[in-house]
Design a protein around this nucleic acid. Structure first.
Lengths: 118, 118
DNA sequence: CCGAGACATCGACATCTGTCAATATCGACA
DNA sequence: TGTCGATATTGACAGATGTCGATGTCTCGG
């Protein structure tokens, strides 16, 4: 299916100017909030951090499951949230699934907050 | 009561290294998440943005109320969340209450995400 | 001292969210 | 083909969250 017509939340945010520059429109806020919600959970923060700091920048779900005392479906659920928000890329290789942090996603979010535009 | 022994969420986060440097400890994630939750709401994002971009860097609650089609208690609730997380400072002057963005708070958060440490 | 206005708190409610157990799906391999 | 192991999906449930109306607490003017 065509993916070019659907933007992930993180993509719809990359264009926004920093929070402190001008009042956010109601519309912009509604688009940004889901993205922030995606990282507003301790488990997802750790998942993001684990994947980002992992060797080769990617991590297998099997490794991630072991890092938590949570059920496998729960981890799967959190990974889905991160993936659908555009923060994690997903690739299936054989039986395993690997996630990696989408390049620039966190940086865009940081810029939005800090206003430290490049 | 003494406030010197209690750190706001934002203060407990300022010390952390960026997400992508090393895996977040479970403990660190539990401290960071509430702060991110505080901005994971469209109304609070707009409030933050409104205050930050307001003249003199501060805004009266009366102005903020008018910017939303929400009840006054609801706005008050959101402001409380932002204040208790350490993102907004609160000052009462006469009958009015003024909020301003706590210096560095957003920048600390941005650093945490983006890793663009100074 | 009393009334009015600005803001906070309380109590109630519907909705959202994180979690699990059970089950489905998919690919490798015998 | 049939089984097994790795992930995803589903359904259910408790607890968290956003919202409101009613009410409380200040502070200022008269």
């Amino acid at each position: 299916m065509s993916k070019s017509l659907e933007l992930t939340p993180v993509e719809t945010v990359a264009c926004c100017s920093p929070l402190t520059r001008e009042p956010l429109t109601s519309d912009a806020a509604e688009r940004i909030a889901p993205l922030v919600k995606a990282i507003a959970d301790p488990v997802r923060l750790r998942l993001l951090s684990l994947v980002a700091s992992h060797a080769d920048g990617e991590a297998c779900v099997c490794d991630l499951n072991d890092a938590f005392e949570l059920s496998q479906p729960t981890i799967s659920h959190h990974l889905k949230v991160l993936h659908e928000s555009g923060l994690l890329d997903r690739e299936k290789r054989g039986v395993w699934v690997y996630y990696r942090v989408r390049a620039g996603a966190l940086a865009d979010l940081a810029t939005l907050l800090g206003g430290v535009s490049a």
